[in-house]
């Protein structure tokens, strides 16, 4: 698992993809930050973090699109599967590699609250912590969806699109639920990552939300191992 994680992280940084994604997200965030937070003289980050969730909907599928597709296309999947590791090890190793790149993106945003404080803004620390925690959790869940999407095909672009569509539906689930109403709304509510996000982001540190996100991640990673395992039975 560690070997796979290490290789995948290296692979991200051997290729331009990690740099492009990190700088792109940093650029977009900085624009939001400069013209929103700083210009508006807000001494808080939560609004900004909330806004960029939508950007993650695009960025995460691009981050994860090649994580499993590449192995199938190049035939390196054979090497991984015939090594003395479990399929779960492969999936988790790959997932953690994507998460690592995400964390680099994420760590860069720490510079913003520091600037606010340096400029003399008074920040509410619990709010800030809650906001960042929520952001991390939702990022983890999105990456799990992205990894799952990349297990479904051997084409990177198709994987990115599938990931994007799933995340888009998840983003829009609240309006959809309130439109359909009734029992179906409750079912759909189970998949609503955003409503829980808003709770956490407004400083309500609810342990059930944290467990919810972790379970959501685990379920998608489990599904990914099932997809890979299932395919082993049907291929030549």
């Amino acid at each position: 698992m560690l070997a796979i994680w290490k290789r995948e992280v290296q692979s991200y940084f051997y290729q331009p993809i990690a740099y492009v994604l990190i700088s792109l997200s940093f650029l977009v965030l900085s624009i939001y930050y400069t013209f929103g937070t700083i210009a508006g003289r807000y001494a808080e980050m939560n609004n900004l973090l909330g806004n960029i969730i939508f950007i993650l909907t695009f960025l995460i599928p691009i981050l994860t699109m090649r994580i499993l597709t590449e192995d199938r296309k190049n035939g390196t999947e054979v090497m991984l599967v015939t090594s003395p590791v479990e399929i779960a090890d492969i999936v988790i190793g790959k997932y953690l590699a994507s998460l690592t790149v995400f964390l680099v993106m994420y760590a860069l945003t720490f510079v913003y609250p520091i600037i606010i404080i340096a400029l003399g803004g008074k920040m509410e620390i619990p709010m800030l912590v809650g906001g960042y925690l929520a952001f991390l959790l939702i990022g983890m869940s999105f990456i799990a969806v992205g990894v799952f999407a990349s297990s479904l095909t051997e084409n990177q672009i198709v994987a990115a699109i599938i990931g994007f569509v799933i995340l888009l539906v998840i983003n829009l689930i609240d309006p959809i639920a309130s439109y359909v109403g009734g029992f179906l709304a409750e079912v759909l509510g189970i998949f609503s990552l955003l409503s829980r996000y808003n709770d956490l982001n407004s400083g309500i540190l609810d342990i059930t939300s944290i467990i919810y996100y972790l379970s959501f991640t685990a379920v998608f990673l489990f599904l990914t191992t099932r997809v890979i395992d299932k395919r082993r039975w049907s291929q030549g």
Binding site: A3, K6, R7, S11, N74, T76, M79, S83, V85
Partner: peptide
């Protein structure tokens, strides 16, 4: 051969060793 094109030969074999 299941090769990672973006790795050097040495890195690739090191990876294989830790995988095994």
């Amino acid at each position: 051969p299941p090769l990672y094109m973006d790795m050097t030969v040495k890195d690739y074999l090191d990876f294989s060793a830790s995988l095994k």
